[in-house]
Amino acid sequence: MGRFFKSFFITFLVIVLLFVGPISFFVLKNHIENPQDFFSEINNGSKNVSFLLLGVDSLDSNTDSNTRSDTIMVVNMNLENGDVNLISIPRDTYASIDGYGKQKINHSYNYGGPELTLKTVNNLLGTNVEHYVTLSYGFVGDVVDIVGGVDVDVPMDMDYEDEWADPPLKIHLKAGEQTLDGDKAMQFLRFRKGYADQDLSRVQAQQQFVSSFLDKLKSPMTVLKAPALLRSYDKNTKTNLPFSQVVKIGLNVGKLSKDSINAQTLPGSPSYKNKISYFFIDENATGTLLREVGLK
């Protein structure tokens, strides 16, 4: 997956979490075992929510065997001012994996699932992030279908295939305004070869898609689809993030804007070790970045 799709993936997750949170608040209001503790945590807990976000290269996020994490990001949300910091960790980052020595950090998911990946990230960064959210690519297509598709203006004919990609890549879209279903939305978002000014145009495509998706979420009819959204969230995620935290995020939706989401990549540079390409972090610059966003 390219950097563009990864950035959209994170934006998409944050938006859906913000929608699911307030809906779930009402769903759970009369169906929780310890309501006093639940609501106390929502009202009185920390205003910072941090978790490790993992996008896996398998369509089944609940199967760890033979699965590596394609997207690894630390998410830190300040619920008082709405700031969201997303720190991407390149999947080739050279890291010490407990019990397996030093190798590429994305191998940790294969060895021990999200728990070992979380431990590996904390050891690498010197942080104490306690929670993770693992998300499969199927979530994107599911949610787009649930909300009835997303209206976009496809800027050109898009034709590209790559059978070795994971998931396999088959893109065939015609130019023009249209409503994309889940499968076509994935094609649109994964296309990156034909833009004249690739980075700028791909960012504009992301912004167009997210804006259209937000419009769908604001529709009164979408509220009726909340149960289906919750089922998709449950089916396509694996997490130890307390549900009270998800609800807390949702209840602060009004403080979030596109401008408040700050995405960065861990400082460092690629290089070779034993003829294998790795990404080596810059420890000093990384420490500075983590302190700036409140993770250290």
Rank of each mutant, 00 (worst) to 15 (best):
M1V: 10
F8M: 05
I10V: 14
L17W: 03
V20D: 00
G21K: 01
V27G: 07
N30E: 09
E41P: 00
S46I: 05
T63Q: 14
T63V: 15
T67V: 14
R68H: 10
M73Q: 02
L79W: 03
G82A: 04
N85A: 05
I87P: 00
S88V: 02
I89T: 05
R91M: 05
D92K: 02
T93N: 02
G99D: 08
K102C: 06
K104V: 02
H107P: 01
G112R: 01
G112D: 02
L118R: 00
N123G: 05
G126Y: 12
V129I: 15
F139K: 00
G148T: 03
G148A: 11
G149T: 09
V152F: 09
V154L: 05
V154I: 15
P155I: 10
D157I: 08
M158F: 09
D162Q: 12
E163N: 13
E163A: 11
P168Q: 09
I171W: 08
K174A: 10
E177Q: 12
Q178W: 08
D181A: 07
D183Q: 14
R202P: 01
M221T: 13
V223H: 10
L224A: 14
P227G: 08
S232N: 05
Y233F: 15
D234N: 13
K235T: 13
T237H: 11
T239V: 05
Q245D: 11
V247W: 01
K248I: 05
I249V: 12
I249S: 01
V253C: 04
K255V: 09
L256W: 15
L256A: 12
K258L: 14
I261G: 06
T265E: 15
L266Y: 04
S269P: 06
N274C: 08
Y278L: 07
F280S: 02
D282S: 07
E283S: 15
A285N: 11
T288G: 05
L290E: 04
L295I: 12
K296L: 15
